[in-house]
């Protein structure tokens, strides 16, 4: 299948330190890929390079076969590359319904409309209802976000990302900071993501990675040291050495 998302030989260094060193990867629609790596491996830099918040020193990023290396961050979103944030970035006084509605209108290029209240736009609200219902946030639709539990805020981040109808979704630690009791709901939401969507998840929680991903990429010191199936990642000696350590023994024993 043709690649929807491609990164070719991406490089970026800060003051002589190569934080992203010749990283390449390719994803097809429907891929479920996890990007893991020890702290300081360059995961965040990689995300920022891909989203256009940082400029690479060399290399190329392609979405749907087109190069977006010289496209700014906003236009990359409009071309279908959407990210979620490691720490939720929501508008504290707005409700989940307003968040999702704003994302829908933004996607349709109608967020600049100066008249009309989207709470009374039936088309928009129907879509909001479907998305919010899917993530189990319906009861909270009209509550300000600051009154909502963190786990549910994370679900709202996913709902907003989906409202933008992405082709490629970057999930930056979708379960970070969520109490153990709520991770099940996030996992269910991830399992329900659209089939044709390419998802790249950055995550520390190895249980989640192994359940979610069909393919794992390991980044260490800015370089891809492994790209293969989850079953093989724990067996790879370089990965063991660089990252998994005792965890690999634990999970292979389990």
């Amino acid at each position: 299948m043709s690649a929807i998302f491609e990164v070719r030989n991406l490089k970026r260094s800060f003051g002589g330190l190569a934080v992203t060193n010749d990283v390449s990867l390719s994803m097809a629609p429907g891929d479920r890929v996890a990007l893991i790596g020890p702290n300081g491996a360059g995961k965040t830099t990689f995300v920022n390079l891909v989203t256009g918040n940082l400029e690479p020193d060399a290399g190329e990023v392609r979405i749907g076969g087109e190069s977006v290396t010289n496209v700014n961050a906003i236009d990359r979103v409009r071309r279908g590359l959407v990210r979620s944030f490691q720490v939720t970035r929501l508008f504290q006084d707005m409700t989940p319904a307003e968040h999702v509605a704003l994302a829908i209108l933004q996607r349709d290029g109608r967020a600049g409309r100066m008249f009309g209240n989207f709470l009374s736009m039936p088309g928009v609200m129907a879509e909001v209802g479907v998305l919010i219902g899917k993530l189990g946030l319906r009861d909270l639709a009209h509550r300000p976000v600051r009154e909502i539990a963190y786990g549910q805020q994370r679900l709202l981040e996913i709902a907003m990302a989906l409202a933008l109808k992405p082709r490629v979704l970057l999930l930056d630690e979708p379960a970070a900071g969520v109490p153990q009791s709520d991770t099940g709901r996030i996992e269910r939401a991830l399992a329900d993501l659209p089939d044709d969507l390419a998802v790249l998840m950055i995550e520390h929680d190895m249980d989640l990675v192994f359940r979610f991903a069909k393919r794992v990429i390991v980044l260490a010191a800015g370089t891809v040291i492994f790209d293969g199936s989850p079953a093989d990642v724990t067996k790879d000696p370089r990965v063991r050495e660089a990252y998994l350590g005792s965890y690999a023994d634990a999970s292979s024993a389990a």
Partner: peptide, 9 residues
């Protein structure tokens, strides 16, 4: 309006 909401955001 949606625009007002966008600005608050």
């Amino acid at each position: 309006s949606p625009f007002g909401m966008l600005c608050r955001g």
